[in-house]
Amino acid sequence: MNEMETIPLWAAALLVSLLILGGSIILIGALGLMRLPDFYQRIHGPAITVTLGAGCVLIASMLYFTVLQSRLVLHELLITVFVLMTAPIVSMLIIRAAVYRDLRARKRDSGVESGGIYRFPEQE
């Protein structure tokens, strides 16, 4: 890691804070996935991993390679845009699958049509 000596101080400080914040946020998101009591609360745990945690790590990676190679390295923007565009679709499809499965399991098909909004966690 000899080439790391060329990193200026301000960039190193920014990188350290971004990495520590990102790592902690990722850990908290996974912790929420593990220990929240029911599924509809659990789905909010990974959301912070995907947005803030991944954002911090991606910005840190961009900054690191830009400073290290002293040219503009921006291709992590591709991953950022891709993740920001696909993570909403994934969470929407998963929660919709969960809602439909719960409706079917409880034989309450009318829940979708009549708009009496489904309230599952109390029934468990």
Binding site: I43, A47, T51, L84, A87, P88, M92, V99
Partner: peptide, 20 residues
């Protein structure tokens, strides 16, 4: 709108009720 709402932690868009 769905991208913005789903990206915000704490809210998840489920569906649009079709008839109303």
């Amino acid at each position: 709108l769905s991208c913005l709402i789903n990206s915000t932690p704490g809210t998840v868009w489920v569906e649009i009720l079709p008839n109303r």
